[in-house]
Amino acid sequence: MTSQSKFEARTVTALVEDRPGVLARIAGLCRRRGLNIASLAVGHSEQPGLSRLTFVLEGPPGVVNHCAAQLERLVNVIEAKDITNKNHIWRELALVKVATSKETRVELLELSRVFRANVIDIGVDSMTFELTGGREKIDSLITLLSPFGIKEVMRTGRVAVLRSTLFEGEDDGEFQATRNWVNGLQHEYHFEPGVSGSV
């Protein structure tokens, strides 16, 4: 067995049909290939009837690198892209409910200001922060809040989009190399005309 430490994480985005059972098909495929879904975010896309997924998959390198191609085999998956080595930006969102008292409230508000977290709920003995950012930023805030007594943490999975290319040649050497590598796995091909529309 491959140990957990040999696992590699990949960020994959997919555009899928918004209908019952699609997530089960995707999850089933990941399960079959022994991939762990470390995080998952699903929501409506800009196109009606289609949802966009971002997920982080962990698994043995030879398997997890291949998952986008496998996902594209599913009839309900319009496209799947492994964007790990592409220039992309990603965010997570966390809601953190922390215990408060008269004495700690000011200090907590100060922390939220530094982290640019929003306070979205205040009660007698707790307040809830909303924080967006990378995983490390969210982890740091949670660490700092721990001494106050965290009551609940709710984190979304990662959501990711490819960056726009601002300048010609922005793809540096490294990016080019990884893209060629990814091209080895994600294949271009010609379609039967009209098939994806109607026959």
């Binding site: 594209e72 091909y189 098939v195 994806s196 109607s198």
Partner: peptide
């Protein structure tokens, strides 16, 4: 048939 996610490879590039 409307299957936006289903593509049938034919010739190769």
């Amino acid at each position: 048939i409307k299957l936006p996610g289903y593509r049938i490879p034919t010739t190769a590039p």
